[in-house]
Simulated scan of single mutants.
Amino acid sequence: MLIRLCYASTRVERETNLLEDLSNILSTARQFNQEHQIYGVLYYAEGTFFQCLEGHKTVLEALYERILNDPRHANVQRFSDQFLEQPCFSKWSMKYVNDFTKISRFFAKLGLDKFQPDQLDERQVQDFVSLLLKIKN
């Protein structure tokens, strides 16, 4: 059964800098995801991660447990899973979006003055995922 699993989390400040953390997360995710037929997108801004993962439910549940235990993440909030016929992010083992302008506009239209994915309702999460899918990097 294919699902979409999305979550938001706060980045835990550590000795490593942000670019090193992002590089490590992306390289590890891309290799692991390619081996396990997982697809998705990662966005980071203002101390907050948002990640959308698509794949088989059992594999994603195990991966999500690893994320919960990852010391780089705190205050992890999982959104409702969506069942999929096929993955939407199948072009990417892990797409990274860095278009702050479009994301800022999206959140401003919702009345939020900064990137706050934890404030999104389920419909808004799906709208946000659609935006991330459309953004070309």
Results as ranks from 00 to 15, higher is better:
residue 4 R to T: 11
residue 4 R to M: 12
residue 4 R to L: 11
residue 7 Y to Q: 09
residue 8 A to I: 02
residue 9 S to Y: 07
residue 9 S to K: 04
residue 10 T to K: 13
residue 11 R to N: 05
residue 11 R to L: 08
residue 13 E to T: 11
residue 13 E to M: 06
residue 14 R to S: 11
residue 14 R to A: 04
residue 15 E to Y: 06
residue 15 E to F: 03
residue 18 L to P: 01
residue 18 L to E: 05
residue 19 L to Q: 08
residue 20 E to C: 03
residue 20 E to V: 07
residue 21 D to F: 12
residue 22 L to P: 11
residue 23 S to V: 02
residue 24 N to I: 06
residue 25 I to Y: 01
residue 25 I to Q: 00
residue 25 I to C: 01
residue 27 S to K: 10
residue 27 S to Y: 02
residue 27 S to V: 08
residue 29 A to D: 03
residue 29 A to T: 07
residue 30 R to F: 13
residue 32 F to L: 15
residue 32 F to Y: 15
residue 33 N to Q: 12
residue 33 N to D: 02
residue 34 Q to C: 13
residue 34 Q to L: 15
residue 36 H to Q: 10
residue 36 H to D: 05
residue 36 H to E: 04
residue 38 I to E: 05
residue 38 I to W: 00
residue 39 Y to H: 11
residue 39 Y to N: 09
residue 43 Y to R: 00
residue 45 A to D: 04
residue 46 E to T: 02
residue 47 G to N: 01
residue 47 G to H: 06
residue 48 T to L: 04
residue 49 F to C: 01
residue 50 F to C: 02
residue 50 F to L: 01
residue 51 Q to D: 14
residue 52 C to G: 08
residue 53 L to I: 10
residue 55 G to L: 11
residue 55 G to I: 14
residue 57 K to W: 01
residue 58 T to V: 07
residue 58 T to Q: 12
residue 58 T to P: 03
residue 59 V to N: 05
residue 61 E to H: 09
residue 61 E to M: 06
residue 62 A to W: 00
residue 63 L to C: 12
residue 63 L to H: 07
residue 64 Y to T: 09
residue 65 E to L: 07
residue 66 R to D: 15
residue 67 I to L: 07
residue 71 P to I: 02
residue 72 R to H: 07
residue 72 R to K: 12
residue 73 H to I: 01
residue 74 A to E: 02
residue 75 N to E: 10
residue 75 N to D: 11
residue 76 V to P: 03
residue 77 Q to G: 15
residue 79 F to Y: 15
residue 79 F to W: 12
residue 81 D to G: 07
residue 81 D to M: 14
residue 81 D to F: 10
residue 81 D to P: 05
residue 81 D to E: 15
residue 84 L to G: 14
residue 84 L to I: 12
residue 85 E to L: 15
residue 86 Q to R: 14
residue 88 C to V: 13
residue 88 C to G: 15
residue 89 F to V: 09
residue 91 K to V: 05
residue 92 W to I: 03
residue 93 S to D: 13
residue 93 S to C: 06
residue 94 M to F: 08
residue 95 K to H: 01
residue 97 V to T: 02
residue 97 V to S: 00
residue 98 N to S: 05
residue 100 F to V: 06
residue 101 T to A: 07
residue 102 K to W: 00
residue 103 I to H: 00
residue 103 I to Y: 00
residue 104 S to M: 10
residue 104 S to F: 12
residue 107 F to D: 03
residue 107 F to Y: 11
residue 108 A to S: 13
residue 109 K to R: 11
residue 109 K to G: 01
residue 110 L to S: 04
residue 110 L to D: 02
residue 110 L to N: 02
residue 111 G to D: 13
residue 111 G to F: 07
residue 115 F to T: 03
residue 116 Q to H: 09
residue 117 P to H: 03
residue 117 P to I: 05
residue 118 D to H: 12
residue 118 D to N: 08
residue 122 E to P: 03
residue 122 E to S: 14
residue 126 Q to S: 14
residue 128 F to L: 10
residue 128 F to S: 00
residue 129 V to M: 03
residue 130 S to E: 10
residue 131 L to E: 01
residue 131 L to N: 08
residue 131 L to P: 06
residue 134 K to D: 10
residue 134 K to H: 09
residue 135 I to N: 00
